[in-house]
Design a protein around this nucleic acid. Sequence first.
DNA 1: CTGTTAGCGCTTTCAG
DNA 2: CTGAAAGCGCTAACAG
Lengths: 407, 407
Amino acid sequence: MSITTPYRRSAALAGPINAAKPPRRATISDVAREAGTGKTSISRYLNGETNVLSPDLRERIKAAIERLDYQPNQMARGLKRGRNRLIGMLVADLGNPYSVGVLQGVEAACQALGYMPLVCHADNEVEMERRYLQLLTTYRVEGVIVNALGVREETLRPVGDGGVPAVLVDRTVAGVVADRVGLDNAAAAALGARHLLERGFDEIRFVVQPFDEVSSRQAREAAFRDAMRAYPHARGETVVLDLTDGQAVERTLAALDAQLAGLFDGDAGADGGGGSGVADADADVDVDVDTDTDGGAVAGAAFHTDVNARTAPRRIALFAANGPVALCLARHLKQRYGDAWQTRIALLSIDDPDWAELVGITAVRQPTYEIGYRAVEFLHERIAGGMTAARDCLLQGELIERASTSR
Amino acid sequence: MSITTPYRRSAALAGPINAAKPPRRATISDVAREAGTGKTSISRYLNGETNVLSPDLRERIKAAIERLDYQPNQMARGLKRGRNRLIGMLVADLGNPYSVGVLQGVEAACQALGYMPLVCHADNEVEMERRYLQLLTTYRVEGVIVNALGVREETLRPVGDGGVPAVLVDRTVAGVVADRVGLDNAAAAALGARHLLERGFDEIRFVVQPFDEVSSRQAREAAFRDAMRAYPHARGETVVLDLTDGQAVERTLAALDAQLAGLFDGDAGADGGGGSGVADADADVDVDVDTDTDGGAVAGAAFHTDVNARTAPRRIALFAANGPVALCLARHLKQRYGDAWQTRIALLSIDDPDWAELVGITAVRQPTYEIGYRAVEFLHERIAGGMTAARDCLLQGELIERASTSR
DNA sequence: CTGTTAGCGCTTTCAG
DNA sequence: CTGAAAGCGCTAACAG
């Protein structure tokens, strides 16, 4: 990109800059000299070993520090001590409100435990993720909290077992042994699915990003399928929506539309004709889920059908596996069916972003703050002592019922 | 808060941890020994002074580094060199998509210029802001980019003139002389206002958070008023909405409702009766804006009225000064007027969050990425050389027209 | 071309 | 109670 907009001088801001001030910050030696003592005592004072200092000296030091506006250099301190109280927080996507929620928990816990979080934003770029991870170890952070992309083990190599202590948030990474904290995906997906089923929705599409490499998506998808089994009269399908590929999104949504169109008039099992994006429904046959997770843009599977009840129109619901998917679906549905789209299709989402309330969408809210908080606590334990086995902390989601599923 | 959810051991993750590995990372001395040479040469190699090294030595060093998986310690490096390539990015509120956009620009520029951004999230807490700022200087960052809260000068003391180089984003802070980069607020507010006026809206409420301490809000409000002057047949008012105070929000919105209710039937100038929140309209009189910025939750001013044309019902629009305000308004309007609220009242917002498109709201989009990018460039110049006067970089907003103002 | 020598600012023995 | 001295890991003169 190019940055071309010119800037203007602001009369209000322009002013003579005081260039006379000594740019060099005071060091511990300066303070020692000012207080007429040795560096050691200053160091002791700084570290709260205030009991071993004579009241007099204590006063002189205090005064000297104030006079010089001295602030100890954490870098030097860290170099000497071997630990710098820095921990890295690698965030996959700050545009996802989930991440911001987790971050808030992380910050709170860091403050409580005396760490300084160094937050890095990979912005969904694996390359960035790699770069930041390496940068973090270069700055000798004491540990990292990783909300990984669909990374491969290698980029996480420096981390976890044998490397920097790490805790994974939301997702595990194959080959990396480390603590993990996140949503109880199985319970959350089941919660959502059951809610829809109990509300009488009998045509449910679970829409999820490619999940062959992301543990949390896998868990949600599997739990959705499980939940559907208990309701033989209803039908569920998984639709894979690759948000990173605009073309694929178009195709998948078109196929979904086509398939659903046939259902509005009670014509269960009819495939509107969209070829790619959603597998044909294989009506009247039980079909195991398509395990061919080819990583491609589209994959789908019908795993239960009972089309005897094709008398009444089906009640259709879309179950979004997370916030970004929900947003994509909502946008599309609105564009396709107009402002009244919610009267035709229900939407339920795991994740509860701001706009969900505005639009009136039922959601399973994640305890993001707690997730972040716990992650730091875990990391702290790892840093401090030698825990042995990796732990997995599952937190429960909460169903927020709104208009979308209440008709 | 309490963290009580228990965790479970995951069979999949549990495994013997390799505690045998040497936890200590290799140092430059280790590499020197391994390569059979002195530290200096290693340092030279690291710093790309590769031309002054014999090809042979170069090879040996390269090999040694790989064998030991050596990674130079940035802390030590920074300590010695006096600069550590760290810059701080203080974000007021990551929940505001604006901030995330800016952050993306910051990250890109940092990468391009070789800095490592240390992002700190004040989360709207002035105390956090202070803490982080002090922490940043303690870590000897080379500069800071500050998206300040309504801070007072003192907390920014260590920064700017005479302290750490700084550039302000979006807002200036009274008493702090530093570069600033942000939206051209005057132009943006005028753009929005004129759009509404041209579309025939003649009753406009500019809704803004308390602006006596926030320069960007001030600028927007002032520009709104200016723009209204050119349309004597229309009427504009400023409504102050303090999002940090739930009670005040309730009151202000109630008052706003009451006032607007009277307008739907063409009864211009009628005040629905809500006392607080919105000042009475002072119909038929030109009134200067109430400059008594008492910092309280409510303040308002009618500044032009021409109620001769009270024959036709007024066309009402709400102009939100930023995204968070827009969200608050949208929520309220939906709750108050139901799903069809947009047929009664138009909403236009400065800031263009995700949901604006979903809900169909016209917006003035800020060039957030560029703002962030430029901020880093400015900071870089400050760090490098001795610029003298503070600059003010104004970037233009872009009007995104949507259904809300197209009826 | 290459190694030796001082430190950067701080903590930490180890003797007073 | 207090201070001198020895580094943490690295870079930057200054000699070879």
